[in-house]
Simulated assay, not measured.
Amino acid sequence: MVRIAERLKRLQPAATRMASERAADLRRQGRDIISLSTGEPDFVSPPSVMEAAKAAIEAGKTFYTPAAGLNELRAEVAKYYKDRFDLDYAATEVIVGSGAKPLIFEACAALLDPGDEAILIAPAFVSYVEQIRLCDATPVVVETDPETLDFSLDDIRAAITPRTRVLILNTPNNPSGRIFSDELVTGLCQLAIEFDFTIINDEIYERIIFDGLVYRNPLNLCPQARDRMLHINGASKALAMTGWRIGFAIGPQDLIKRMTMLQGHNTSGASSIAQWAALGGLRNGQAEIDQMRDRYQIRKDLITRRLSEMPHIRYIPPQGAFYIFADIRQTYGKKVGGMTITDDNSFCEALLEQAEIAVIPGSSFLQPGFFRMSFATSEEIINTAMNRMHAFLSQLR
């Protein structure tokens, strides 16, 4: 009998993948399920990406790349950070990986020893906890104010111990779409300097911003934290390249070197064609990114307007990304179709069974009492889903 490692026995499946796969399974059974569970743009990758990929294929660029990624792509990422944030990074301070998520895991593996601690700010992306645990380290969750989803710097300070090695910052946030204030982000940077830990700054949604707001990189606010900051970014969200699996990490050269060594023994590097495709998108895709962001703005305005008309629900207005994170605690104790809502999991189950809408419970993001739904889909689908949700909420008794 095969003996499974204890660390994998503790591993929990990703709730986002489980929800989307269950929705697909129900569709195969003939159910008319609308899935708002997956954080994936519904746009096909734009021409700047496709044309670069075709050119790479026709030129026969199908060989291994350096483990850290194509030199041209790493240099272009460094240029992007200079152009967008006025931050000076060399290509040797950039690594390209098979998506942002593997790079976060590589960073955790490079920074965390068994028994170390990593601070997470709830709500937090579903994979952070499991990746920290896979490194035999301990996730330390700091709660936020459920009315605003803002954290307290005093609470962060209280969570820091001599074993604290990492804090993961995600803004614009998945699942809430929150952009944390300059004051809060600056405070985190100052704490990282004071207590000598590394901030993994997951800013994968930094190009999807709404209502004329501006995203600022933490180092624009606190340049002194440069040696304690690793940026995580990529092509999946802004360039609609989820299936190409291309992410970037930008940070201190020694950390990038260690992550590259790990990647060399693991994947050997990302797909060559996908890297050339991402290079085309970075160089020539800004107008296409702007067009997609404008469509997300329309969808955000539509879904928030529709939700504002519904009973028993309160949402946190998203400032970026493409998610709504809604507070459904007022529905607790209510019934619909013979089902009683007792928590966010039972709410999502009832919504799926009674209204045929698939969403993700907030407890999967360390924030019980909420649920997440994506609006990275057409206005027609959003309107249909909101009609069903309004009817569902109106039936609660």
Results as ranks from 00 to 15, higher is better:
221 L>V: 02
209 I>R: 03
64 Y>I: 03
392 F>L: 05
300 K>R: 15
319 Q>D: 01
131 Q>G: 12
275 Q>D: 09
294 D>P: 12
238 A>K: 10
64 Y>T: 05
366 L>D: 13
245 R>W: 13
72 E>G: 03
312 H>L: 08
198 T>Y: 00
148 T>Q: 12
255 L>A: 04
193 I>D: 09
142 V>T: 05
74 R>P: 05
133 R>T: 03
318 P>I: 01
41 P>K: 02
227 D>H: 11
396 L>N: 04
36 L>Q: 04
237 K>V: 04
80 Y>S: 07
53 A>I: 07
356 E>D: 12
271 S>M: 10
154 D>H: 10
93 E>F: 13
251 G>L: 10
205 Y>G: 03
86 D>V: 06
333 G>V: 02
295 R>D: 13
179 I>Y: 02
28 R>S: 13
276 W>V: 01
217 N>L: 05
266 N>A: 11
33 I>Q: 10
64 Y>E: 14
229 M>W: 06
387 N>C: 11
169 L>N: 15
192 A>M: 08
45 S>R: 12
347 F>Y: 11
108 C>L: 14
241 M>Y: 05
366 L>E: 11
298 I>W: 07
256 I>Y: 08
147 E>I: 02
182 D>V: 06
3 R>G: 10
98 S>K: 10
329 R>L: 11
245 R>D: 13
23 A>Y: 00
50 M>W: 06
76 E>F: 00
330 Q>E: 04
218 P>Y: 02
